[in-house]
Design a protein around this nucleic acid. Structure first.
Lengths: 341, 341
DNA sequence: TCTAAGTGTGGTATCGATTCCACAAAGGTT
DNA sequence: AACCTTTGTGGAATCGATACCACACTTAGA
């Protein structure tokens, strides 16, 4: 019986394994065997199949394959924002490593909204991704819960998530090292431009590193020296404005991101505060910008691309069946001192 | 008869529509109807189904759905390189527009290798993407052929491809406008830093715009004034070195990308050639960097995010069945004059 | 009262690939 | 000659969801 099926418009009829089988004069099974190189196939049959595949431009349907085998060959990557230098470097590293191992990546974007992280995890699950990498910017209970329910390979990058394999930057020590470096240059009054604490790695750890370094050297911190921004140039500019208009101006500024540090530089330039003579400035991130602003910004290189690669490697290990429950990797960093100190 | 199937390891058994149906005490068909909101379903049945879905944390398999409906809800995006400012802005625009319309994007990376463009198109086809956006950097016959075979919605961004719906920047006029702007400021000897011609938009059109502007104002171009780079800071630096060590040094430089322009600025600074007094510099791209280097770089804003959005809109139109065979959109641009001129 | 239209639900074929099983033919070993 | 093995191939079930069709039950209209 012939039945007309009302398919969505615009559908091109792809050639299927069935068509190839017919053309090659063998069964679908044999075609599959040739293409996947398993089971016994005579030389003759193999040649016929390959010829048919070639002639028909046959491309196997990844969906059908995924459905049958339960493996999609895709890793989902959840980003806070696509268009940041950090994110693109990390993705680059992930992509390289995964592509080498035959995996593709499916990118999603949370636009910095925590609820979208969870939504995206579900979306990726529905697409049967073989694993998920989350560039995390916050930590909350619901997120952890959702991750646990997703019992497939999962790695978080950027934040240490409890019970989740995580790759983290050494935020505490990086900030600590910066502060000590400034102190060793004779600075006693060091100002700080941070961000809100919902981002634990950037907001809490980097601040603690700074505070502890000051404490270690018996330097007190004036309340006015700790200012906050929101990752933008403008907020860095404004924070610097506040830092330089208080009663006791610091002689150095540690900004937790390059963008805010560069915003601060802009403010200092406008106020004719010389850098580094009157004020030293340090950022974190080793952005392209940092090298090309004037004066060149001192910063910390987090080796983002390498971080991406390592994260990908962890996913790959999990895919190979190794259980890495709760493994943590802390990445290294490198201080880059330039003209701004 | 019970049959054991040897599935790949690590497979979690997802709950399926069948499980939900059993729990809700209805048939799979009814569950599908509730979830897709079509056909008649009694209030009672609907509630039972939704309750079961909720309790079981059921997430429908996108693959099974795709297979049956021939629509995946995914648009493939092919990038030359992931980690560039331009690419991430464009992707951001695409992502926003598509997400609003319920589509996801699948990113792939060609690492600037032309053969990978074709490979990626095939890869995306095998994943049944509903459409493909290509950020093109070159044009060749085989690529056009492959695109034609892929008879599904396709839009190229950045290069005008014959017979393919394309969104292009107004490279010719942008370069023309820059040159005219420099000329109107009194410059007669204008140097040029370009790239190789395989990238037609950047390598050919921008150069022609520059040349034609010079011609229009009866200004001759010394052969030594046309130099080439490869998009990197370093190559801009080196090109500037050549431009400033010839017999007749130009009084202005038009670099076809911001990165090369900034590389050039570095060289000029080192040689103590003052900008803009001794040498004006103009870039293209409106990168973050351009605003923050010293002196601030004059450049052209291509509105990349908007370009991405428009490209996505074209794909969406095609998905709605509109045939846009060969439609071309030329984007607008805006000169940003800063301290470097 | 009978028929036609509207409402609600389930059975089953289908999408495209993989894979278990059965079976057949050819070659080797007692 | 009888019986294993090895090699080669196809049939059919399966993955999870959709949608056509058939059927049953209401309700309204003639």
């Amino acid at each position: 019986m012939i039945r007309l099926v009302n398919l969505a418009k615009g559908v091109k009829n792809m050639t299927t394994i069935k068509d190839v089988a017919k053309r090659a004069g063998v069964s679908r099974t044999t075609v599959s065997r040739v293409l996947n190189d398993n089971g016994y196939v005579s030389q003759e049959a193999r040649e016929q199949v390959l010829k048919a595949v070639q002639e028909m431009g046959y491309i196997p349907s990844a969906h059908a394959k995924t459905m049958r085998t339960k493996r999609s060959g895709v890793i989902g990557v959840i980003l806070p924002r696509i268009s940041t230098e950090t994110a693109s470097r990390v993705v680059n590293g992930i992509e390289q490593e995964l592509a080498e191992n035959g995996y593709q990546i499916l990118l999603t974007n949370t636009q910095l909204k925590p609820e979208k992280e969870i939504e995206n995890i579900k979306l990726l699950r529905s697409r049967q991704v073989d694993g998920i990498i989350l560039l995390a910017t916050n930590r909350n209970e619901e997120l952890l819960q959702t991750i646990k329910e997703t019992n497939s390979p999962f790695v978080a990058l950027g934040q240490e998530l409890e019970g989740v394999t995580s790759v983290v930057y050494d935020d505490y020590n990086a900030a600590f090292s910066i502060a000590e470096s400034l102190i060793s240059k004779g600075h006693q009054r060091i100002g700080f431009i941070g961000v809100q604490e919902t981002d634990h790695a950037v907001g809490v750890l980097r601040k603690e590193g700074y505070k502890d370094a000051m404490k270690k050297h018996n330097l007190s911190i004036d309340e006015e020296w700790i200012q906050y921004g929101d990752f933008t140039f403008e907020s860095g500019y404004e924070a610097a404005e506040r830092l330089t208009s208080g009663t006791s101006m610091p002689s150095a500024i540690l900004a937790v991101t390059d963008r805010m540090a560069i915003g601060a530089l802009g403010c200092l330039k406008e106020k004719d505060i010389r850098v580094p003579e009157d004020m030293a400035v340090f950022g974190i991130g080793a952005s392209d910008l940092s090298k090309h602003v004037t004066p060149a910004l001192s910063t910390v290189d987090y080796f983002n691309e390498d971080a991406g690669r390592q994260t990908a490697q962890l996913i790959l290990k999990q895919l190979k069946g190794k259980s890495l429950e709760n493994q943590k990797i802390k990445l290294s960093y490198r201080l880059i001192e330039r003209d701004s100190v």
